[in-house]
Write a protein that binds this DNA or RNA. Structure first.
Lengths: 255, 255
DNA sequence: CTTGACCCTCACGCGACGTGAGGCCGGAGG
DNA sequence: CCTCCGGCCTCACGTCGCGTGAGGGTCAAG
């Protein structure tokens, strides 16, 4: 029973009516039909397509290319989503490079160092050459689940936290035991402990797919606050845990 | 002795000659001078300015606005860099929201759930309304300091980690003491403990300005992994610590 | 049956360049 | 010395993704 006028769809999607007209003109997004008065009528299929369009537009794709991407029937919707994740990851990394450049500039300024012209444009130059639209490597972090889980944890009582503490300790003990016993990160014991670790998170905080778990593992060595937590349990544990998590994720994904 | 022709500068910066001509036309970036034949000559000052221009352009600012930003002599170069960091952070968060939307879409698809139209466009709608170019609430994480600190912490020995653990415990004890004694977050005791906390991070991990510290504080309640750490010390501590950090940051910034 | 909020189709404008057209340097080779 | 080639110059028009009216039809409410 759904069906939207241009104005409704525009407001819903946060774009202007003119933009929708434009998309119609160039054949990127045509209404499902028209009323006898000539009014454009969009329905759910168009809504979904518009969502996709806006996504790619946000990432700077030209409309023509977006049409080509979306009209490629050899790509499944799920595959689309995968590619979108990768594109976002690429963009984020690009921005992080920019941030790093800014950081370098700050350091250079405070230290009174003079960067060479090449250094100054390094980040731009590289980005323009490697053409970020490619099928780049997709190691990236699922940074948002945290926010979602905030709602869940907000409801935890003191008792909950105490229970969680016990569980946490148990998990950590298992990790330390495997680690101090000299188990390799890809040994069954290590992987089982890592899986236990993953389950603990999934139960108490947020759903933690193996892929997500990998990111956590990486963060345990990348972020000193986390590194400290694990290094205090046993020096060297942070890196070992990261490797165990990855090994376990490999195993989980094979099935 | 430096000095570049349009072509040289263009290649160095990864832009086209035409773009530089354009920037000259609209007065955004004029060459330092001309040869008697009329050739544009750029030198280091222009190079620096071009770098800034490209930065803001990358983030989607219109050229006119870029000119306004860069010609505002009331903003120091260092302040510029600070703002740039914030802008990058905003952008990254925006992308992370996008990623979250994609993730939701994937989950919805695998679970066969149907999202409401509003949900589908949630991320776009919100972003477009709050207009991220503004001097928006700048609660954001200086996500890059972590990486820098990784280098620092990579060199820490076992002894270092043990020392840090002791310090951590001392800081935490101070926090718990103030908290359980019923001190308000904006009491001197609480703020002093928070300041101690900040100093501890600055000494051992990365430079942690009050502004940055605020972000950490927010994360302690937003991110369950951190929340857990503090809630386990004393239930309610996470939120209290966050408030104390903010109070302390207010105090620090007043001076 | 009017009013006001929506819809339609032209059609021109704009920002940030791309892309020639037509012509002037400048240094390396014949 | 001339010539040739790559690089520079200035118009000036084209493109993309819309914004912004102009001029006019539609529809539900009062």
């Amino acid at each position: 029973m759904s069906g939207y006028t241009v104005g409704q769809l525009a407001q819903l999607a946060g774009v202007t009516v003119r933009a929708l007209h434009h998309y119609d003109e160039i054949g990127l997004l045509s209404p499902g039909g028209r009323t006898r008065a000539g009014y454009r009528r969009y329905d759910d299929a168009e809504l979904d397509r518009l969502q996709q369009i806006l996504f790619y537009r946000e990432l700077g794709f030209p409309l023509e290319e977006i049409a080509a991407i979306l009209d490629d029937r050899s790509v499944s919707p799920t595959e689309h989503l995968r590619r979108q994740r990768e594109l976002i990851g690429d963009r984020i990394r690009k921005l992080e490079n920019l941030a790093a450049a800014v950081e370098r500039a700050m350091e250079a300024r405070t230290l009174g160092i003079q960067l060479t012209p090449e250094e100054k444009f390094e980040v731009f130059g590289k980005d323009y050459q490697e053409d970020w639209e490619d099928e780049a490597e997709q190691r990236w972090g699922d940074t948002d689940a945290w926010k979602q889980s905030q709602q869940r944890t907000a409801k935890y009582t003191k008792a909950d936290w105490e229970r969680i503490k016990e569980e946490t300790d148990a998990v950590n003990d298992a990790l330390v035991a495997a680690f101090t016993a000299g188990a390799a990160p890809d040994s069954p014991e290590a992987m089982d402990a890592a899986e236990q670790h993953r389950g603990h998170i999934g139960l108490n905080f947020y759903e933690c797919a193996p892929q997500m778990h990998r990111c956590l593992g990486d963060m345990y060595v990348a972020d000193p606050r986390f590194t400290a937590t694990y290094e205090q349990l046993a020096p060297g544990l942070a890196g070992w845990l990261r490797d165990a998590i990855h090994a376990n994720a490999d195993r989980q994904e094979q099935s």
